[in-house]
Design a protein around this nucleic acid. Sequence first.
DNA 1: GACTGAACTATACC
DNA 2: ACGGGTATAGTTCAGTC
Length: 827
Amino acid sequence: MQKEINFLPLDYDYFDLNGKNCIKIVGKDDRGKRVCLLDSFESFFWVIFKDGTKEKRIEEIKKEIETIKIESDMRKTEIIKTELHNKKFLDKEVRALKVYVTNHKDCHAVADQIGYDEVLARREYDINIITKYILEKKLLPLTWKKISGEILNNSREFGGIDNILDVDLCLKIEKIENLEENRKKELDEKFSPNILAFDIETDEFEIGKGAILMISLYGKNIKKVLTWKKCEKSQEFVECFKDEADMIEAFVEYIKKIKPDILTGYFSDGFDMPYLKARAEQNNIKLSLGIDGSKPMFTRGKITSAGIFGIIHIDLFRFIETSFSQYLQSETLGLNEVALELLGEGKKEIKWKKSSKMNESEWSNFFDYNLQDSMLTYKLSEKIWSDMLEFTRIIQEPLFDITREGMSQHVENYILHNLEKYNEIAEKRPVHDEIERRRNLGKYGGAFVLQPLPGLYEHIFMFDFTSMYSSVIVTYNLAKSTLLEKKEKDSLKVDLETEKEKEIYFSKKPGFFPLMLNEMVEKRKKYKGEYKKNENNMTKARSNAYKLLANAAYGYQGFFGARYYCREAAAATAALAKKSIIETIEKIKKEGFKVIYSDTDSICMLLEKRSKEKALELLEKLNKELPGIMGLELEEFYERGIWVTKRDGEFGAKKKYALINEKGKLKIRGFETVRRDWCTLARELQNKILEKILREGNEKSALELFIKIVKSFKERKIEREEILIRTQLKKPLSEYKSITPHVIAAQKMKEAGKPVNIGMLVQYFIAETREKKSLVREKVKLEDEKGEYNLDYYLNHQIIPAVDNIFQVFGINVKEIISGKKQTTLF
DNA sequence: GACTGAACTATACC
DNA sequence: ACGGGTATAGTTCAGTC
């Protein structure tokens, strides 16, 4: 029977049937029903011929390629057909053969068998089958389409797969059509995904070592904690089970009943999912979460990803880490801090105890805690849903992947999904040896940073280049495909000071990469405008996504794992940006303004006795003289600003300054205040001192505050929390060549049976010791250890260093004041 | 054992 | 393996006298 539906694709998967590729797509129709679409797919790759290959020879090779067969235990693979096309490869016109293969998995093996002298390259055998499918059929993720097809009901065609799927409808795709924009908009407004958040609590932190004590679920119509522990008299949201096995089975049943589109957790790829897997195995339960009854699939990689067929499992932490953290101020990306920042509400506080030692009220608190975590995860997912949606639509990869891939992969996927407009065949992914070669090339020259003259300044204008590196790439046409082997007529010469190949040349004929980037920049401008006109989550997310993508394009070209890696283009981008900002600084100076600081794409200058209008006129003039799409804008006007010296020496420190604008808002960069590896005492003291100086324009009350705090510090009135030092553990303990204080702290934690993981913040303080010890690490104590804070250490390594060079700007030597030498002369 | 510079380490800026 | 280079600053480590 035939049927026509409006369909929103959510999850993609594929399987083999009789050696051929089948694609299954799970999504929603416009009445909220869960639908699975099945489709066959003929995969292909390209054989590109060298320039000048005779058509007759191409025909011969075509015939020979068509006879290739590959046989393995699994399947027989053949060539379905071949087609000759005029295409482009790296912006050059080429003749290319599109080779259709019965099974995608054998694309690479078939391509390997083609080794003619006339063949320039074989490409696109290394592109993911889902990506290829989306490209070919235009069934874009999270985008409404009109689908017509045949209703499958126990059909033999797909091996009866429709029978085991928990869906309302299963269709064999016959036609995919676009919907009218208005209709799409209407459907979009009606749709919101059914999200279910979950979180588990366990006795042991090591995966699978202890039992799962409880599992919380939080969704639109469900707020529950499942447990098999003391819960006879607990809260009504707690549901009791006989044992761990029963509880896990109930969890699976709830998922089946709720039928969420999205199952989300916080760090669930790294903890909750693998833990559930381990405990299910231990208890001989099948964790059949997939809509076909399948278990979660764990993909290999540095971090494993847990996929559930038909339900999109999102580990919110990973999306926030890779794509969203730039918007956040949080020093760590833990659930508590991120939720506090985005929702204004954090985790519940509880005292950690072995579960065997908990009393009834402690269990009750634990249930609250567990539910709260799911609730926060649910609310966070709602909060950033528009960002995930926009990223997915713009990049056109499935949501599951979008929430896990890094910025570089996003850029690459965006490129792959937009090559068609340029008739381009995709470049290959680098293999291991090539990656090694690229990595061994070392660094190339980067940005320009102007050394400031230390001091307190007033009336400061800050200009900055809008999306500087992107605009340089577009303006100067810098990419792999436009890099010339040697100098050509009317090409662009770029000097690279630090490189062996000092001069390189780029074509002026626009390449697809800069053109595509220009499109991104244009779209960003357009959607930023739309956002300004109509401020909502959607327009904001769209504008931000384009901004992030455009900004990542430069890093992408310099990234060793990129298909379109081009070290020369990246180096030229940095070199031309440097040249451009230095020239701009010179122009500003020529106009009589004093330039006090500059870093990469920003310039700080003093107004002195001039009016603001004068500076704005200058900005306009500079903009007129900038080439291509490059542009300079007013970042902000600041009332005051302070630049200090480096710790040792009299020279001004780069990347370290504090500013205050007309509204009294501070902008602090580089100072210890913004560094999380300094203790709160030093950070807050420095922050207050900077604020006083910037607000009042003098150092008097700042100095008074400093003396007051030192006094209270010496009297040991400072709380332990204030003097804790937090340092991130970046690798396994055994790999540290230098045994630093935080390594010692981590070792102590391990000995105390506390969890020690890569990436965690280790907390410790420096204590007084009985004997004299020369190394800092010999005085390390954990926060719950007995001991007094080390007066000498904190004074000379935290408090004084945090304020010393600030007061030096005013000619004040705080060390002498502390030791009592000069106190009288100052007061 | 004190001193010194290099190496290692973490974190920030753009 | 899973964006880039520039920069500051702390602590340890290895060598010198």
